[in-house]
């Protein structure tokens, strides 16, 4: 099936769902003024369903926008790929969404035009009310092949591996370079599907854990804190890095947390696979690694 055929399926189904009142809106993607850039949009009338697009650039995560719709009556319809479904699971787990108020239209993904989609292992949604098509296993839209996963800098933790390969001083310089350029716009936080606080600690009126000053050192504190806050819930979608207006390679921070969680627990760790699992830092094992005590 071509992307064009899939797009038509999406538009038809969205129009039908809206027309019979099954959902009050459909969260999907529309084309922007810029070629190769789509944006998340809310479609609320059947006739607007033609706005919806599906192509190799329908990259942004739809799930986080749902949080804004959660108090309105009726069901919200959402177009969800594997990554979106993990995000939905996370938001359900954090009590930011209610499953019965969602209608999830599952869209198995063929991989998008973004290097951060390359290691994706979850093309078909984990949770959905209907699937519009089946995953095409033959399609290779950028997913990790077995050979790819082993290639240096191309595996699941490609960004973290890149940093880890450096010596400790070079690592410091790597981040110095990143955080000297950071403008603290918090786009990374806003896009993150697991950043669900009512008020982020950095926005509080009374400066608490850290200064609001924008300099490499304080930006660095923000960067590490963010990794600590979201790392063990991170669904590895890459939105934080994708939305960074300065193009900073910050995905390594959260990748490092997941990598470490796996090493410490001696077991695979992946957030968002369901809506029940406890976070890595929200549980413990009596036999956890205890190297420095």
């Amino acid at each position: 099936m071509t992307n064009g055929q899939k797009q038509q399926l999406i538009r038809d189904r969205a129009a039908a769902l809206l027309a019979d009142g099954a959902v009050s809106c459909i969260v999907g993607w529309r084309q922007t003024r810029f070629a190769g850039k789509t944006a998340v949009c809310f479609v609320r009338a059947p006739e607007d369903a033609t706005l919806l697009v599906w192509n190799e650039y329908t990259i942004p995560l739809t799930a986080k926008y749902l949080a804004d719709e959660r108090w309105t009556g009726g069901k919200a319809g959402i177009l969800a790929r594997g990554c979106d479904s993990k995000a939905i699971n996370r938001l359900l787990r954090d009590n930011q969404l209610e499953r019965e108020k969602l209608y999830i239209v599952g869209l198995p993904c063929e991989g998008k035009a973004d290097e951060r989609c390359r290691p994706c292992r979850q093309k078909t949604p984990l949770v959905y009310d209907e699937l519009l098509w089946e995953e095409d296993s033959a399609a290779d839209g950028g997913g990790t092949s077995a050979a790819d996963a082993d290639a240096p800098g191309r595996g699941r933790f490609f960004r973290a591996d890149e940093v880890s390969a450096l010596g400790i001083d070079a690592r410091y310089d790597y981040w110095e370079d990143v955080y000297a350029r950071c403008i603290r716009c918090y786009a990374c936080r806003n896009a993150c599907p697991v950043c669900s606080c009512r008020e982020c600690y950095v926005d509080m009126h009374r400066a608490g854990f850290q200064s609001k000053r924008q300099n490499a050192a304080d930006n660095r504190v923000f960067g590490v804190t963010r990794a600590f806050h979201v790392g063990d819930r991170c669904i590895e979608c890459g939105e934080c890095e994708r939305v960074c207006p300065m193009g900073l390679p910050i995905l390594g921070q959260t990748q490092k947390v997941i990598q470490t969680a796996e090493a410490l627990a001696g077991a695979p760790y992946e957030a968002g696979l369901n809506a029940e699992d406890e976070n890595f830092l929200g549980k413990f094992d009596l036999d956890d690694k205890d190297a420095f005590m």
């Binding site: 954090d94 009590n95 669900s196 008020e199």
Partner: peptide, 21 residues
Amino acid sequence: EDKCSGCGACGPICPYKAIAL
């Protein structure tokens, strides 16, 4: 309560089950 988003991350940490949503 103003700040609490009800995410429930605190609950499972408590050894006394003192936190409920």
